[in-house]
Write a protein that binds this DNA or RNA. Structure first.
Length: 527
RNA sequence: GGGCCGCUAGCUCAGCAGGUAGAGCAACGCCCUUUUAAGGCGUGGGUCAAAGGUUCGAAUCCUUUGCGGCUCACCA
């Protein structure tokens, strides 16, 4: 085992090398991802695309040219109205139509599918993911896949046999590997009854009973069903790599049938791997897109910096399940990321193996390139306290930190915004506080406590010249000198400072707040 | 019924192209009588689900079993 030059064992790098090995030496590798925008794109869907993107980066880091495509299956049928959408009744009337013809009832986009697409495309850009988007509805309606549809019809029997191997109910003799949206109703309640062996297909609208013959080259409402559409696109785009969730990867699932069906299109299945689903921790609701209660990339970006979102996925092997947390785990994730960063910049002593591994994860976590200078680190937990001490004012927190270079500021501001969101949305009550306004009323205290608070005020005046342990001792001394229990002084101090019974450890907390904030509050009690 | 994933310290998990068991939290102890919730230092704690196999060597690879979870067989 050579230490230097040992190839990366990061999963993305391993897959990248496997792709090259299994697909051979090529001028360009096509990596594909895609889902249907039939509902809010959730964080589970995101695992698919970031898994591909990480492999894309790994391939590029090996000096390979990569085409990274993302297919929006927006010619899909509108099956169910998500509960979180406005104008439920209106949407109801569009069921069974293509999602590109369903109106966007949130009023931001040209249609329902586009609305879902735009939301996530914007977010993906933020985390550094910019694939070449392919819109399936547009492709089908432009006749791009006409020849492929014809190919599917020509191989109808093979395809049917393949699908039947895994079906409980075999497909009927008359089954055709195409589906049509009725031009009479716009809905997919249709039955294809014949194909003329050329470009003509005839279907019957099941709701009106009417029949119509279409030319596939100009037809606007003809598509391949999913299990055929997928391998068709592999062949059409020459896809070398596409992972899939475990729902597709089970035996008899769509990947299984697709890898056989792709042969009729004259191609082979891409290199693949299976990724597992992700769980959510510390936030109610499920991931599913139809229930309405979804956790989206937006929700995650509210709490995690973009590079930390990437870190979550880059640092976890795709074929195992993991949880995205919104509870106290957030603190640990930030600490882990910061540690990874310190390891990358050589500020933390670790073994060589660990260093290589963490460094690679760090690189892959970056939205673009790795910063030349180490970013300014403020532990998330401490930041939560700072923000609350400074009345949630980000500018004031940043100026209190001292030397923050201009190029370090942006990340820091993002982290501040995330911390504020976390405090508002998920932090336990013990974590939140705000400094009181001087002069506002607090409970009466017995004399010895008042005396101790006065002493404490004098201590605060000198605290910048005291060491941590000295300061701590002075606090106890203040209590003892005034004849009260330290415990009671602590409780009173928190009342005076933040209006609560408890708070962060007093000595450090006072120092963090600073003289100019602490003294006025204490002074009103000084005797 | 098939497929996949998991089972490692009290808890949450990392470690997996084999090379003497790790982190965080919790617990316990110490940091001048002395701590309240962010600090520092330290300690304890695991027959790596079970049994076989391959190997000089297995948490890691293979086989079988058990328990838990997901998924396919309808649509996508």
């Amino acid at each position: 085992m050579k230490k230097e030059n040992s190839p990366s064992v990061h999963w993305a790098d391993i897959h990248a090398r496997n792709i090259i090995r299994s697909k051979g030496d090529k001028a360009q590798y096509v990596c594909a991802s895609g889902i249907t925008p039939s509902g809010t794109v959730h964080i589970g869907n995101f695992r698919e695309i970031i898994s591909v993107e990480l492999v894309v980066r790994a391939l590029r880091d090996l000096g390979r040219d990569v085409r990274f495509i993302y297919s929006w299956d927006d010619f899909d049928v509108f099956r169910k109205v998500p509960k979180n959408m406005p104008e439920q009744e209106l949407l109801q009337s569009y069921l069974r139509k293509p999602i590109t013809v369903v109106p966007d009832t949130t009023g931001t986009s040209e249609n329902y599918a586009r609305a879902n697409e735009e939301r996530i495309e914007r977010q993906l850009h933020i985390v550094g993911i910019d694939p070449e988007y392919i819109y399936q509805a547009r492709q089908y309606q432009a006749g791009t896949y006409a020849q492929s549809i014809r190919t599917a019809l020509e191989h109808r029997e093979e395809i049917r046999a393949c699908l039947n191997k895994h079906r409980r109910e075999p497909l009927p003799e008359s089954w055709m590997p195409v589906s049509v949206f009725s031009s009479f109703t716009g809905r997919d309640a249709t039955e294809v009854i014949s194909w003329d062996g050329q470009w003509g297909i005839t279907y019957r609208c099941l709701e009106t009973g009417k029949e119509e013959t279409l030319d596939m080259r100009s037809a606007k409402w003809v598509k391949l069903p999913w299990r055929i559409d997928w391998p068709m696109r592999w062949a059409f785009e020459g896809v070398d790599f596409e992972p899939a969730g475990k729902d597709h990867h089970s035996e008899g699932g769509s990947f299984d049938t697709a890898k056989e069906i792709v042969k009729v299109f004259g191609s082979d299945a891409p290199y693949t791997f299976q990724y597992d689903f992700i769980r959510i921790k510390g936030k109610g609701g499920k991931i599913s897109s139809s229930s309405g209660e979804v956790v989206s990339l937006t929700d995650v970006l509210e709490i995690y910096q973009p590079e930390i979102v990437r870190y979550l996925f880059a640092g976890t092997r795709p074929n195992t399940e993991f949880a995205v947390s919104f509870d106290l785990d957030v603190l640990k994730i930030y600490e882990d990321y910061d540690k990874c960063e310190r390891i990358y910049y050589g500020d933390e002593e670790v073994g060589e193996k660990r260093r290589q591994k963490e460094s690679r994860i760090y690189e892959l976590s970056q939205v673009s390139s790795v910063p030349e200078d180490k970013p300014y680190q403020v532990p998330f937990r401490h930041l939560c306290n700072l923000l609350q001490i400074h009345s949630r004012d980000i500018d004031s927190v940043i100026s209190s930190l001292g030397v923050v270079e201009k190029h370090q500021e942006e990340r820091l501001r993002t982290r501040c915004a995330c911390a504020l969101n976390w405090l508002d949305l998920y932090a336990p009550e013990e974590f939140t506080f705000s400094l009181r306004e001087p002069g506002s009323s607090v409970p009466e205290f017995p004399n010895e406590i008042l005396k101790a608070l006065g002493q404490l005020c004098h201590v605060a005046e000198r605290m910048d010249d005291l060491s941590d342990s000295e300061l701590s001792e002075e606090i106890y001394a203040a209590a003892h000198a005034s004849g009260c229990e330290p415990k009671d002084l602590f409780a009173a101090s928190y009342q005076v400072l933040i209006g609560k019974e408890r708070g962060p450890r007093l000595a450090g907390f006072m120092r963090t707040c600073g003289r100019e904030k602490v003294i006025p509050l204490l002074r009103s009690y000084a005797q």
